[in-house]
Design a protein around this nucleic acid. Structure first.
Lengths: 259, 259
DNA sequence: AATGTTATGTGCGGCTCCGCACAGAATTGG
DNA sequence: CCAATTCTGTGCGGAGCCGCACATAACATT
């Protein structure tokens, strides 16, 4: 269990082998990430890469004509700013903090060096990129086929999976922006979920009261993404385990295990 | 200009430095890719990575409940099977050939080795992954906000950018599957575009007659993605140029250029 | 040319969401 | 404590797409 306020609260950083972690540690800057803060604007260079610990951020794809939809939720299992690592400065996505919390940031060039010239960080990030891709594709399907109720359920589940507690601090208006629907549609959807007993809403808050119900409402879409992210975490811990194996004992008989 | 039937018809392979290209060349297998052929099924391991030359493939995200939408069009500017390189065996996406043509395939383990242990191929592929990501996000927005007309225009443009000629061999039914709409909706949309003079449709074919008109109809969504892919190609050729620079001449005066 | 098959055209009721309008409730700030 | 602000609740006409049901047209086969 990492101590409070450690970069290891971020699962990518936690999965790094010691050598790599040690290289990055002095370059990491602990920052507050208040809800609503814009991390990246579309088209502007990515100066820092962010590793959330207790915060949750969202990728928001906006068009000039005002259309807008969330394409990915990122918490302490990942990082914001992959774009810069994949090799493109310029991307049309806004990233903002969805739920207040902390995180670590690091100058893009530093992670980029580590990412490109060493072999430890890269697989972690690429595996995460894959999960993010799946999430985005799921949103694409969702935007065509699913009702607002379903999408709201999904949004809640994805956010709360990355937060302690069972309550998300968000207004209907903000949720509407995330989902790309009207504020009123969110209100109605929230009521339906409340009537079903899945959530309870107060002004500016949505609290889950029956998670199973909510998962049922979100349906298959959440299941698939959840599974992908479970796989991601397994991958992380497999790597972490491998790298924390003790070096082969030269005098094996001195180090017999208790079993 | 690459000779016909060369792996260099694929722009990723063409941008590879000689050393890397030479390593991969004997491992590449030239294959026919007929329209409708399924390259990957959801959940099955990715045995080969495909580099299209004259074919065009599409990523299709399908859910168990039958919902389905295209999340990316890939031609000779990229490759199918990135998933395997990012580190996950298992992904819920179907990939199929949208337009008949040729391509090269290579056993996953071979590219994976090259991707992981050498430094030439990786940046190309990662940069492409980024473009694909943008494309998917664009589709996500599109699925929420745009009309069938607009999306059909977009699909046509994206496909034809990757094909010679101005005609796509596709039925309304198939286009409907790609877009995740009814066959009838495609019929109606195609008529609108035809009435506007942008396309002409025959049984099983959609031919562009006025590209500007079609781009206007697709609107901003195509523009953004097109720009991203233009950037991708620039990136490719920058890399290719760097790697094809002649080695520094030891006897410089013997190799003066004509200028 | 006859026949079956596949692709396309068209219409209708229904659903979900939108845009708009406005009323009420919760919270904040002087 | 009152006013201003911000959120939430509700209703109505309309747009766009769906699901379904047929009708027709293009092509393929023999």
């Amino acid at each position: 269990m990492p101590p409070p306020q450690s970069p290891k609260q971020n699962k990518v950083l936690a999965a790094l082998p010691l050598a790599s972690y040690t290289r990055l540690l002095p370059l990491l800057e602990h920052v507050a990430m208040p809800a609503g803060q814009v991390i990246y604007d579309p088209g502007l260079p990515v100066k820092y890469v962010y590793f959330p610990t207790s915060s949750v951020v969202a990728r928001l794809y906006e068009t000039e004509s005002g259309a807008c939809t969330q394409t990915g939720i990122i918490g302490n299992e990942g990082l914001a700013g992959i774009t810069a690592l994949l090799g493109s400065e310029n991307f049309p996505v806004r990233v903002l903090v969805l739920s207040t919390g902390k995180g670590y940031r690091i100058k893009t060039s530093f992670v980029k060096d580590e990412f490109e010239s060493e072999d430890e960080l890269r697989p972690l990030i690429l595996r995460f990129a894959h999960a993010l891709m799946i999430q985005t594709e799921q949103v694409a399907v969702s935007n065509r086929y699913h009702t607002v109720d379903q999408q709201l359920s999904y949004l809640l589940l994805m956010s709360l999976d990355r937060l302690p507690g069972n309550e998300l601090h968000i207004t209907h208006e903000q949720a509407g922006i995330m989902l790309g629907v009207r504020r009123e549609s969110v209100t109605v959807a929230a009521h339906k979920l409340q009537a079903a007993g899945a959530i309870r809403c107060r002004r500016g808050h949505l609290a889950v009261t029956d998670r199973q119900q909510l998962e049922a409402s979100a349906g298959e879409q959440y299941e698939v993404v959840k599974k992908e992210y479970d796989g991601l975490l397994t991958f992380y811990s497999a790597l972490a385990a491998r790298s924390s194996e003790p070096p082969p004992a030269k005098f094996k008989r001195f180090f017999q295990s208790a079993e």
